[in-house]
Design a binder for these strands. Structure first.
Lengths: 146, 146
DNA sequence: CGTGGATATTAGAATAGCTCTAAATCAGGA
DNA sequence: TCCTGATTTAGAGCTATTCTAATATCCACG
């Protein structure tokens, strides 16, 4: 019990610290959202976060607008990445390491792929029992300043 | 004048034939939409197609639902590819050859990248005066039947 | 030639994800 | 305590897309 409590507290401290380090004022709502992200599977939608953060009775109620604002802020501060697999919704990925994805059109499942596997994709690193339908490499660039 | 007319007619025949070959019944609306795709830049949105197909007085009026249905059908029949660069809209790409994209976050421009350039991306094949912000490789898979 | 059933098209309503607005709340420095 | 700026909120608004259900078109068969 005591252990569990300690773990929980130190987790919270970590979250608070991470927000601080990233230059994000750690408000109660943002902490609650960050907590949810920590305890969720890796790829989440805004709506999933909204549901989860308000389902549990602990912590503050968080409005939908705040969920969107906070997720957007986390993305801007590189704590999250946005993923667009179809037009109907945005996924947020808590793994900010360079990596890519397998998206299973049949199941909707989004699976990580290590970056270094890219050259071998077509040989052996596919998820089991799947066939490639389409490969899309999107490189987002910005104009050079100056 | 005569030349121009001939060219136009033969273009139409080609379009009709392409739809037939792809197993798409060539209705007047679908032909008009396919025409628009031929004479547009490579990456278009449903709304651009809708505007363009109805701006010219020749050909039938085409409803928005039919534009969406037809574009969806063309995608299913591999005459078009969908591209998701952000959550706000779907692009349709008339180039169905295997290839990828540069997306300029500053300008919204979508630029083709040849598939074979992928391994050299980070060296020299970037669009001029741009910096990489993010690379995303999306591999869409399907469950193996059987 | 009809006619009947499948296919296609349509206008407009509905949906859904996301953003905006304007008011209320909160935090913290003077 | 008061002031100011940042944050949150409910709900309205926006927009791309899909749905609905009525109409039109096509064409094979009698």
């Amino acid at each position: 019990m005591m252990d569990a409590t300690n773990i929980h507290i130190s987790d919270l401290l970590d979250v608070r610290q991470q927000l601080n380090v990233s230059g994000i004022t750690p408000t109660p709502q943002r902490l609650a959202i960050a907590e949810v992200l920590l305890t969720s599977h890796q790829h989440v939608t805004a709506d999933e976060v909204f549901e989860k953060v308000n389902r549990s009775r602990v912590g503050p109620r968080v409005s939908k607008a705040t969920v969107y604002n906070s997720l957007g802020l986390f993305v801007k501060k590189s704590l999250l990445r946005e993923i667009f697999v179809d037009a109907s919704r945005t996924f947020y990925d808590t793994n900010t390491q360079p990596h890519h994805h397998f998206y299973n059109l049949d199941t909707g499942q989004l699976i990580d792929m290590e970056e270094r596997l890219v050259p071998f994709i077509l040989e052996s690193s596919l998820p089991e029992n799947t066939l490639v339908e389409d490969i899309e490499i999107m490189i987002r660039v910005r104009n050079q300043k100056q």
